[in-house]
Amino acid sequence: MELSPDETIFWQNGFITINLTLVTTWVLMFVLVLASVLVTRKLRSDLKISRWQCILEMLVTGMNQQIKEVGLKKSEKFLGFIGTLFIFIAFANLCIIFPGYEPPTSSLSTTVALALCVFLATPLFGIAENGVLGYLKTFIEPTFIMLPFNIISEVSRTLALAVRLFGNIMSGGLIVTILLGIAPLFFPVLMTVLGLITGVIQAYIFSILATVYIAAATEESDKKKARTKKMKHKSIGVTNSK
């Protein structure tokens, strides 16, 4: 029994390995991009729009709204990263309704890759917003003693992200495979339906956690801006009262 689609290898040359995970990912990417191109080719800005455009608009504005609600005010800036995480993971997980399909998210390599993306993106966004010092300062918050714990937290949450997604999706697929051997008629169908829900929830959790981490890394800048604004208001008030 294969636990991961990584184990299904199509072509290998030394370090380079073309496995099922990569092939499935490419297919998913192709479908997603093709669908996007087809729908956005005939975009309309008036009030009468196609239902596909409506679905995509709902998806994009929904994700944008979620990012804003978590605390990232310039949501459009983070939409590309977080939105792609959600769409890719959700689409990869939802495709389990196709027989014989193995989601790339059930590969630890994929989930680690995605978690590493978040791990790298978080400081990059943090540095972009607060500068290097500003970002590094978040590691000694609230006190200097917390520095090792913050570093451990940074690494462990990346690991947790990767393992959580991998575990959930892999276990779902594994259970369906096992149940097919025991009760091949109805039970796997129910488990697949459950897998669809789990897949969407996992996509949501993954992307929302990534948003929270990025928000935590960039919040220093927001705080500083709020403080500056407050000071300005105060000074204007004092000047006026004088």
Partner: peptide, 14 residues
């Protein structure tokens, strides 16, 4: 196990 080539490829894919 983690296939590091796949990890790098998936990062690029992403």
């Amino acid at each position: 196990k983690i296939d590091w080539f796949t990890v790098i490829a998936q990062i690029i894919n992403f």
